[in-house]
Design a protein around this nucleic acid. Structure first.
Lengths: 253, 253
DNA sequence: CGTGTGTTTGAACAATGTCAATTGGTGTGG
DNA sequence: CCACACCAATTGACATTGTTCAAACACACG
């Protein structure tokens, strides 16, 4: 069931879109580059891949040679325990970078799976690194992105270590909503690309607990639920529930 | 109760020790630098600070301007929730770097507190960054260190999200033991610098649960406990207990 | 020798997980 | 177009784990 490497790499030229024209350029590697630098960056973007729902971008142990950026779609990041239990360490949306956790060991420490049809840009790391050496602002940006990832995961640790089930779901709904909003979607009418199982594996809960919480939130008129379509009805009260969370550093800047 | 800034900065000259002569040089920023580069790195190390037990190196919201490396002693990294509950996201030992989570927002997202008398080197980030621009191997090393931090925290997420209490403690004991060993200490006779409360806040458990687990592990002849002095008696069985954990990526390289 | 902080231990309770049955929605083939 | 099969989601009953509250203890420090 390995990802078939050749089958999915569609003609590079046909798919290649310049970073300068990409609608995500401000999210992905938000730099103020001049035209020259932008061309250099574009030259490092190797090609685009298209993953179908359920397909793997890479797996635990795969050798690391590139970072990936999501153009469209969404993915999950799965850490796998020896007994088979799974912890999803993050969901990723367009404009976000994948693979930062693999630079150190040069092997991917987790699986990345597409939650729906997903388009990916590949950034060969050696090229990116040498370009960063030439462009201080790119070096700075890379360090910032990694730092942000660390800070986000520390918040996530607080969630898994200290928050109760309903707080976790409220935090997730609000944070996912604001991420979708930043991509130009509604902040209250959400379509979740992941299953209840995925959510449970992300929130550190049994899928049944997640399902019950959705039902209870609906009873309490906090949200409306129809399967994976969720509408936030009372954002204020959701914020109250989640407010065990960090005071200041909460928002994804 | 803010850290008194001036009182603890003892005469810089008297404390300053060259990186090239530091016993931690292979842990802290393990580079193969020539004499020139080493001098440049040393020049960026601003000064040394000494913290007493319980003193803060920095607090949530403090402006970020430097990374810190531990020379001796140990610290804890505390993420604080609005309701006052605390999640410790990591303990740090000599040779390890602090503050990587603050680069992005330029504010520290967590508190760092000394668990015992602790000596710290300060690495002003602007200097470090511009030096990294000149020395590709330093740039690479910084990216590696941050990547490692991300990967470690993802393992931690698996622990908090999926492991049972006894597995968490077993993982902690083994991992802390191997970190101490790397510093030249015994791998089986440990002195823990943190309280049961700290451990609970790190492992996502009540302190009473941690205490009970120590007692149970002792009954089962896995370890010997006398307060904070712990001896590992049966490392094999501890490994079995913790083996829910990652198959390969577990070890701290 | 007393005081205080950290640790251990016990018992009752609450939260969440597990197992199992049911429902609902979707796509396929008759 | 309907019937069936399949998978995701819901719901209920019960078991388990870990928390909470409370008390006793122990060691270090003045």
């Amino acid at each position: 069931m390995r990802t078939p490497n050749s089958a999915n790499v569609i003609s590079i030229a046909s798919l290649k879109i310049a970073c300068g024209e990409c609608s995500l350029r401000n999210l992905c590697l938000p730099l103020d580059l001049d035209a020259n630098d932008m061309r250099a960056l574009e030259a490092t973007v190797k090609n685009h891949r298209k993953l179908s729902k359920g397909e793997y971008l890479y797996r635990v142990g795969d050798p690391f040679h590139a970072l990936f950026a999501i153009r469209t779609g969404s993915t999950k990041n799965c850490e796998i325990a020896a007994d088979g239990s799974v912890q999803i360490t993050g969901f990723h949306l367009p404009g976000e970078l994948l693979g930062l956790d693999a630079i150190s060991s040069e092997q991917h420490p987790c699986d990345v799976v597409a939650l729906e049809t997903t388009e990916i840009c590949e950034l060969p790391f050696a090229k990116l690194e040498s370009l960063a050496h030439e462009l201080p602002s790119l070096q700075h940006q890379l360090l910032r992105l990694m730092s942000r990832e660390i800070a986000d995961e520390e918040s996530q640790l607080l969630m898994l270590g200290r928050m109760k089930a309903e707080e976790r779901l409220a935090v997730f709904l609000l944070s996912f909503s604001s991420r979708l909003q930043r991509l130009g979607n509604s902040s209250t009418v959400l379509h979740l690309p992941m299953s209840r199982q995925d959510l449970g594996e992300y929130l550190g809960l049994a899928l049944e607990t997640v399902s019950r919480l959705f039902s209870r939130f609906q009873e309490e008129k906090l949200i409306t639920v129809q399967g994976r379509n969720v509408t936030l009805l009372d954002v204020e009260r959701l914020k109250n529930i989640s407010e065990n969370f960090l005071p200041s550093q909460n928002a994804r800047s």
